[in-house]
């Protein structure tokens, strides 16, 4: 067995509007770059096979699985993670909808799920329930049975999220 110590590559990206630039090994996955170099740990890793979607972020406005991109592939691009979704204190309507519909339990799949859901509505603003289910096929959740996630996405699409949730 031989180990090739490779030259590092410089990666410069915009994440949530801020500039980041680091030298990394070419084999560095984007998700590891986001978590370790940029220090944004909201994006999680749930599998090794691009199956679970916990690592979903937006690359130039579209959902991607950041475990299946090299950081060097994202060089120069614009990335949005869960940390950049809310507008200051004001939750994004999808975040608000997830909260109002109890669409999260342990929270581990949640950042990826929310990012996938935002991308889904961007491409299909008024999906049917079936379209929501198929649109989230690449994001796995073990807690919710998806019932309330689907409900939250439909709730958000209907513009029904509000900020006045709470005790009735």
């Amino acid at each position: 067995m031989h180990w090739r110590m490779k030259a590092v590559e410089r990666v410069s990206v915009t994440i949530n509007g801020a500039e980041y630039s680091h030298e990394v090994e070419p084999r560095t996955l984007l998700v590891n770059y986001i978590r370790e170099q940029a220090g944004l740990t909201g994006t999680n890793i749930g599998c090794d096979t691009s199956s679970c979607g916990a690592c979903t972020v937006h690359l130039n406005g579209e959902s991607v699985k950041s475990c299946t991109l090299l950081a060097v592939q994202a060089d120069g691009e614009d990335i949005l993670t869960i940390e950049g979704l809310a507008d200051g204190e004001r939750l994004h309507p999808m975040q608000e909808s997830f909260r109002e519909c109890h669409a999260l339990q342990c929270g581990y799949c949640t950042p990826g799920m929310v990012m996938a859901a935002v991308s889904l509505l961007k491409e299909n603003p008024s999906p049917s329930e079936r379209e929501v289910r198929l649109g989230l096929e690449g994001n796995l959740c073990r807690c919710t049975g998806y019932h309330n996630i689907v409900k939250a996405v439909l709730h958000c699409a209907a513009g029904a999220s509000a900020t006045n949730g709470g005790a009735q």
Binding site: G53, T56, S63, K65, T68, A116, S119, E123, E137, G138
Partner: peptide
């Protein structure tokens, strides 16, 4: 093919 994220890349 795959899922939406896969199709984006």
């Amino acid at each position: 093919v795959g899922d939406p994220q896969v199709r984006h890349r």
